[in-house]
Design a binder for these strands. Structure first.
Lengths: 210, 210
DNA sequence: GAGCCACGGATTGCTCACAATCTTGTGCAC
DNA sequence: GTGCACAAGATTGTGAGCAATCCGTGGCTC
C-alpha cells in the first residue's frame, strides 16, 4: 500500500507474529527488528504503526510495541464478529457467484472431504481456509473481505486448535457441505444461516477448550 | 495509542475528512497538512499511515495520500457490514445491558422522538447516532465496536445522510422503537432482527437516492 | 533489611537533511 | 498546432542523529 520496502517488512512481521515466532506480549524493539529484517529502523517503525492500527500489536508511549495478547474472551468476540461477516459473504455468494466460482467452491469442499478420509487433519485445516477464501472471493464484497482478513490476522493461533478438537471434523464437514449446497442452490437465506450455524459451532468448540 | 501528538493529528485529520472539509479524492500534501495542523511533517506522516490502514485514505507510492472516494456501491457494502455488526451488538445488548444502560437507551430514543416532533431533522440525526452509540456501549463488545467505528469513519458525513429522505423519519423512529423495546425486553433474537430490519431499510433508502 | 533517590544505559519520538521519484512547464521538431 | 524530450520544481521515502523518556541498578538513609 505504501512503499515496497515497508510493505515487505509489514508482511514479514505479520507473518512472524502469526506463526508464533514472535510470541504474544513479546517486546518488539525497533532496532532489533531492523537488524533481523535487514532494513532501517524507520521502515520497521512505520510497519509497526500499521500493525498497531489493525490490532496485531499494541503501542505504549515511550515503551514501544508488543505483540498483542488475545485473551479467550477476545477470541470469542473475534469469532462472533467473523461469524456475522462471513454469513454476509455466504449470503452474497449465493446471490452473485458465477458458475465457475461455484465449481471452485465445490472443488475446495471435495478437497476437504478427501483430506478427512485420509485422516490428514492439518490438510483438512488448509482446505477449510481455502473454502472460506473461495466463498469470500465469490461474494465480491471488498469491505467484508477486508474486515475478515483483519480479524483472521489476530486469530490464527486459535483456529489451528479448534480444527483439531476430537470428533469435530466430521461435523465440520457436514456444516461446510450445507453451506456449499445453499450457495450452489442460490439460496441466500439458507447460505447465511448455514454459515452462522457453522461458526457458532466453532465458537462452542473454542469455548469448550478453555 | 502512540504519542499524544500523533494521536491528536490523527483525530483531527479524521474529523476534517469526516466533516467533508477535506474533500474526497483531495490530495493530502504532507507539508501543507503539517502547516495547517501546526505539527511536524513526521507526525502528519504517521497519522496518514494510520488513516491509510483503516481505509480512510489511500496511499500511492511517491504520490502520497488522497482522501478515499467512497462510491455508492462501496457505501452500500459499508452499510451492509455495519448492519450485521450492529445487529450483533443489539443482540448482545439485549443479553447484557444493565438497567442503567437500558434507561440511557430509552432516554436517547425519547430525545429522537422530541426532535422529530419539533421537525428538527438534523437534531434527529444526531439523536440517531447517540442511540446507536448507547446500544454499542451496552453490548460491551470491543471488537464489534472497533470495527463499527472504523466503518463509520469511512463515510463522509453529509454525503450519505438518509434521514433526510422525505417521509423516512417516522418509519425510522418506529424501527428504532422496536429495537429499543426488544433490548429492554431482554429478547436477543428480536433485538438482532429489529436492528437488521432497520438497517436494511436504511440501505434501501440509500440505494433509492442514487 | 526495606525503602527511596539518583544516575546510567537502553529505547523511543522526532527533527533534519537528502536522495528517489513524480509532475509540470518549456522548447523544439515537424 | 501537436506531440515529444528534457529540465526544473515539487513531493515523498529514507537514513542518521539527538533529545525525551523509561527502566534497572546501586548506593544511601533509616
Amino acid at each position: 500500500m505504501t512503499s515496497p520496502a515497508v510493505d515487505d517488512a509489514y508482511e514479514r512481521l505479520r507473518s512472524l507474529i502469526h506463526s508464533g515466532e514472535l510470541m504474544p506480549n513479546e517486546r518488539l524493539v525497533e532496532a532489533d527488528l531492523a537488524q533481523r529484517l535487514q532494513v532501517s529502523r524507520a521502515i520497521v517503525r512505520t510497519a509497526l504503526v500499521r500493525l498497531g492500527q489493525d490490532g496485531v500489536v499494541v503501542h505504549t508511549p515511550h515503551r514501544g510495541a508488543r505483540v498483542r495478547v488475545v485473551t479467550d474472551a477476545e477470541a470469542v468476540e473475534i469469532l462472533q464478529a467473523r461469524a456475522v461477516l462471513e454469513a454476509l459473504t455466504a449470503r452474497q455468494a449465493a446471490a452473485r457467484a458465477t458458475a465457475r466460482e461455484i465449481a471452485g467452491i465445490r472443488r475446495a469442499l471435495a478437497g476437504m472431504e478427501r483430506k478427512l478420509a485420509d485422516g490428514d487433519l492439518l490438510g483438512y485445516s488448509d482446505g477449510n481456509a481455502a473454502l472460506h477464501a473461495a466463498i469470500i472471493a465469490a461474494a465480491r464484497h471488498e469491505t467484508a473481505a477486508r474486515l475478515i482478513a483483519g480479524l483472521r490476522g489476530q486469530m490464527v493461533r486459535f483456529q489451528f486448535r479448534t480444527i483439531l478438537v476430537p470428533g469435530r471434523a466430521p461435523d465440520s464437514l457436514a456444516e461446510h457441505t450445507a453451506i456449499v449446497d445453499a450457495i450452489a442452490g442460490r439460496d441466500p437465506d439458507a447460505a447465511e444461516k448455514a454459515m452462522r450455524h457453522h461458526l457458532s459451532h466453532v465458537e462452542a468448540a473454542l469455548s469448550r477448550r478453555r
